[in-house]
Write a protein that binds this DNA or RNA. Structure first.
Lengths: 341, 341
DNA sequence: TTGTATGCGTTATCAT
DNA sequence: ATGATAACGCATACAA
């Protein structure tokens, strides 16, 4: 039942030439006469010949396959990165092999497969690519590019938003807007991006004589909702919050809204990532825009160098500055929906 | 600079056995003595041996590679489908090859690559997989599974939400809530899913003596915003709208909010997809929940059958019922944000 | 310019 | 249980 593909040998036979000539024709080798080329193309057309890339991979040690390892695509920020990255990789004639990983051992399970298909490189959008898994890949000579990680090790190239300065800028901004009691609603406590954002924010706040309330949970809507309940429960709640990402901010706002926080006490809030939803009317959420295009550019340049067999640096830790986008949420503060009128 | 992988021959040499034994060991063939197995595993460990899957693909005519062709991952609905699908495919030992396509010729460009890597099947989440591209794949014997398409042709398996009844249900619901003037804000005019949703809605509305205002644009936030401006501009605007998807609904609401629509005239609105954002507090958007799990189940069953070399039907057009999720937006209607108080 | 021959790293079929 | 050996479909060095 399974239909076989035509091979270059089949084409050669039908065209009355040798298999090498077919091969040369399809790789655009100059050393092939127009007549031969025509015969080959005609035969190929008839047989619906599609060159098999797998032997080429074995012979050239190059698959033009790049693995993208992602955790949570439901976060619009990652969805966008994935989309753009895939597009760019296709433009440079690479194919994307997608690997979804939600637990650490799932990652370990994925490594043998990726290396089995001989991917040229692995790009990870996980906050932490398990040490063990990364080590395995690197040991095999597969370069690993990781977003928002910190590790310095040979063969590992990291690209991150410059989180700490962004955190500081948010602190200054909120204080300038007249905030009195600051809070940080974060992601997982030891997540590298979270640590940097929090640290920058807290240090700058302290430099201005403030001591923020700290909290952490998942990077998600639900994580934000849970934190809001905890942080804003007391008698003298914060009047300004920096959130580890936009989903946390939005989740927190929704929770506050459901709990019926009075309008009299406006809340200033800033998120991170600048997902499309941050600009939606009810939120108008100020945020730090991560410059994904630049981050992707960096990653592609590393890949390019690798393909060009250029001398690769041992490791690389690139920082890309974020850009603060100021919207209503941090200026006039959050306006809660009309049912509270 | 490029490091070579160890081959089974290398392992065999180091272990002092034949290459066949190494191969048998790694495929879990029973006919291999414990001693041999130990020697092999030890040598493999030392050499960091990773079996190369490519030769196997060539010999078995099976890659366990499934291509996922997607258009707009920034739509949270597709992001979620992509995430779950990828996960499920990995569970059945398949790898996902991701292809992003935004224009029709981009799709044609992708076909040769996918067949070059010898993917076993192609799953398309595009509204329309270009006829030509689908034909090529099918002609090559590659089964094509497509979401929300209508075509009937050999080798094409379609899985869709049962859009028309959903549209009818929405019409009945809005009318029951007391709607007087109905509107449909849709996606691209000839998009199959859009056509079905609209048709069901309009037919049921007419059966009740209503004649909905019709409009179409992209399936997106911006598309919704643009339509809202057009549809609600006149003197006697609709008081109830069914939207082709949730992003359109949310975009429309945001546009109305920005335009300062008075609260006195509540608007009832229903979306489609039930993306997470539909449940967010300011929207509380009623929607039709597509049962992605069931849709994915269907797709996986088709793949399973194909892998089992079972007798495949010539074609298949599966319909999965949607489920209406009623929230505030269609009952008490939309409450616009507080700044209008 | 073209064809021949060899190899890539497996699996599968034989013998032994 | 184990080892030769022949494919798989292509790229490439070499010969013509």
């Amino acid at each position: 039942m399974r239909k076989r593909y035509a091979s270059s040998t089949d084409v050669a036979r039908l065209a009355g030439v040798s298999q090498s000539t077919v091969s040369r024709t399809f790789r655009g080798d100059s050393r092939v006469s127009p007549e031969a080329r025509n015969k080959v193309m005609e035969a190929a057309q008839k047989l619906e010949y599609r060159p098999n890339l797998l032997p080429r991979i074995m012979l050239t040690q190059q698959s033009r396959l790049v693995a993208l390892v992602v955790g949570k695509m439901h976060n619009p920020f990652y969805a966008r990165v994935l989309e753009r990255f895939t597009k760019r990789l296709q433009e440079m004639k690479c194919q994307v092999m997608l690997a979804h990983v939600d637990s650490d051992d799932a990652l370990d399970a994925v490594v043998p497969r990726l290396s089995g298909y001989r991917v040229d490189a692995v790009v990870s959008a996980l906050s932490v690519l398990t040490e063990a898994a990364a080590d395995q890949l690197i040991e095999l000579g597969v370069p690993v590019i990781s977003f928002n990680t910190h590790m310095r090790k040979k063969g590992l190239y990291t690209i991150s938003s410059d989180n700490a300065p962004a955190g500081r800028e948010v602190a200054r901004h909120l204080i300038a807007q007249g905030a009195q009691r600051l809070a940080y609603l974060g992601g997982p406590e030891f997540n590298p991006a979270n640590v940097d954002r929090r640290t920058g924010f807290v240090e700058e706040a302290r430099a201005h004589g403030f001591e923020p309330v700290l909290s952490n949970d998942e990077f998600s809507f639900e994580g934000g909702a849970r934190q809001a309940v905890r942080v804003f429960a007391g008698p003298n709640p914060p009047d300004a919050a920096f959130c580890g990402d936009d989903l946390i901010a939005i989740g927190a706002l929704d929770a506050l809204w459901h709990s019926g926080r009075p309008l009299a006490d406006p809340l200033r809030i800033v998120g991170f990532d600048d997902i499309p939803q941050a600009a939606w009317a009810p939120y108008q959420l100020s945020s730090i825009q991560q410059d994904e295009e630049v981050m992707i550019d960096h990653a592609l340049r590393i890949l390019d160098d690798w393909y060009a067999e250029a001398e690769m640096p041992e490791y690389l830790n690139l920082l890309v500055p974020g850009k603060m986008v100021i919207r209503r949420s941090s200026v006039s503060g959050i306006q809660f929906p009309g049912s509270h009128c």
